[in-house]
Measured scan of single mutants.
Amino acid sequence: MDVFMKGLSKAKEGVVAAAEKTKQGVAEAAGKTKEGVLYVGSKTKEGVVHGVATVAEKTKEQVTNVGGAVVTGVTAVAQKTVEGAGSIAAATGFVKKDQLGKNEEGAPQEGILEDMPVDPDNEAYEMPSEEGYQDYEPEA
């Protein structure tokens, strides 16, 4: 019985440690998101679009440190934060509304985080759909 109880105690310690790591990862992701939003706020009209992409990228980098179902929630929060940063930029006159959601080359930025393969159960990952990809044929 002692062996059984000791095993359960060790398992509990492992769960607590994993929860603490997840909590730490979420806190880091939130900190990076805040950094990115402050970065966007300090940019001029020309830099705002690039700044919004930076927020998304920093958040995406930190999301990889967070495991399990938390990833889905962090990704949703990050996307809403990026959308909010863009709205703030438009409201303050840093950028025109028609410039939001495009990178410096004018290509749409939507789907940055949505296409990231995420499995809350950590069982399997699927690649994003290939609808947006084109076949590449090298020139002879």
Rank of each mutant, 00 (worst) to 15 (best):
L100M: 09
V74H: 01
A19F: 13
K34S: 02
Y133R: 01
I88E: 01
L113M: 15
P138A: 09
K6M: 04
V37G: 01
G7Q: 15
P117Q: 12
I88H: 02
G7V: 11
K45H: 01
A11F: 03
G51S: 02
G84W: 08
G132A: 15
E130W: 06
K43F: 11
F94V: 03
P120N: 08
P108D: 08
T22R: 01
V49Q: 08
G7C: 12
V40G: 01
H50I: 02
G73F: 03
G31F: 14
E110I: 08
T44G: 04
Y136T: 12
V3F: 02
Q99W: 12
E83Q: 11
A140D: 11
H50G: 09
E137L: 06
A107I: 02
V95A: 05
E83C: 08
T92C: 14
T81Y: 14
D98Q: 04
M116V: 01
V66H: 04
G25K: 13
E123I: 12
E13D: 02
S87L: 10
V26Y: 13
G31S: 15
Q109C: 07
V95L: 09
G132W: 12
V70L: 12
K43T: 05
V37F: 09
V118Q: 02
T64K: 06
G51R: 06
N65L: 12
A78V: 11
E123Y: 12
G36W: 08
V37E: 00
L100R: 09
G67C: 12
G47W: 09
S129M: 08
Y125S: 05
T33R: 00
E13I: 02
K80F: 03
E110K: 07
A30N: 00
P120F: 03
P128H: 06
A85H: 03
T92D: 02
T75F: 12
M5L: 00
Q24C: 10
V49W: 08
A76M: 09
A76P: 02
E104K: 12
V82I: 04
G14V: 10
M5Y: 03
P120C: 05
G67H: 09
T59I: 03
E57Q: 04
K6N: 08
M1W: 00
A29Q: 05
M5Q: 00
A27Y: 14
A140N: 08
G84V: 15
I112M: 13
S129G: 11
V82R: 09
V15T: 01
G36K: 13
D119P: 13
Q99I: 09
G67N: 06
M116F: 05
E110G: 08
F94N: 03
D98F: 01
D115M: 11
G68E: 09
A91H: 10
A89P: 06
E28P: 01
V16L: 13
A90L: 11
K23T: 04
Q134M: 08
M1H: 00
Y136H: 08
K60N: 01
A107F: 15
A17H: 12
G31P: 00
K34V: 08
G93K: 05
Q109W: 06
P138G: 11
V118S: 07
E57K: 09
Y136P: 03
G86N: 08
D119W: 02
K12H: 13
V95G: 07
A53N: 12
P117R: 05
Q99K: 02
G93C: 10
N122A: 05
E114M: 03
D115F: 07
T75Q: 10
G132M: 08
N122C: 14
E35C: 15
S129L: 05
K80A: 10
V77H: 01
E126A: 12
K32D: 00
L100F: 10
G51Q: 08
N122F: 06
I112K: 04
A91E: 03
E20H: 10
T64Q: 09
T92A: 13
D121W: 04
T72N: 11
E131Y: 09
E35M: 15
V71N: 02
F4D: 00
E114W: 12
V26S: 01
A107M: 14
E131L: 06
M127H: 10
K97T: 05
E28W: 07
G101T: 07
Q79K: 14
G106Q: 05
A78G: 07
T59D: 00
K43C: 06
D2V: 00
S42M: 12
E57H: 07
V70D: 01
P138C: 13
A124L: 06
G14P: 01
A124N: 10
S87M: 14
T59E: 00
V118M: 08
G132K: 06
A29D: 00
K58N: 09
L100Q: 10
K12T: 09
E131M: 02
G36D: 04
K12P: 00
M5T: 01
Y125H: 11
L100P: 15
T81P: 02
A29H: 04
A56T: 11
G101D: 05
P108L: 09
K58D: 01
F94T: 05
N65P: 02
A69Y: 14
T72Q: 10
G73I: 11
E83Y: 13
E46P: 12
A30Q: 04
E57D: 14
Q62M: 06
K10V: 08
V95P: 12
P108N: 08
V95C: 13
A124T: 02
G106W: 07
N103S: 12
T92I: 03
G84M: 15
A90V: 15
A107P: 06
V70Q: 01
A140E: 14
E46Q: 07
E114Q: 05
Q99S: 08
L8Q: 00
K58P: 01
P117T: 12
G7M: 10
A27Q: 11
Q24W: 08
L113K: 14
H50C: 13
A27H: 11
M127A: 03
A124C: 09
P138K: 07
E131T: 11
Y39T: 05
E13R: 13
P117E: 02
A90E: 01
K6S: 02
Y39Q: 03
V55C: 08
G25H: 15
N65D: 04
A11N: 00
A76L: 10
S87P: 08
A11P: 00
G31I: 10
E137W: 04
A18W: 05
D98N: 07
A11K: 01
K21S: 08
G68V: 13
V118H: 14
G47R: 15
K21F: 05
L100N: 08
G106M: 05
P117M: 11
K60P: 01
V63N: 01
M127K: 12
V63K: 01
V48W: 15
P120Q: 11
V77F: 06
G41I: 09
K10Q: 03
K34A: 07
L38E: 06
G101Y: 08
A107C: 05
V52C: 09
G86F: 14
V74E: 01
A56H: 15
G31L: 10
G86W: 15
V71L: 11
V16K: 09
Q99F: 05
E57R: 06
T75S: 11
G47D: 08
H50R: 11
A76S: 08
Q79C: 06
A27P: 00
V40Q: 01
V16A: 06
I112F: 05
V82T: 12
K23P: 00
V71C: 08
T44L: 13
K45L: 10
K97G: 07
A76H: 15
M1S: 00
K23Y: 13
L100V: 07
A53F: 05
P120G: 07
A30M: 11
A19G: 05
L8P: 00
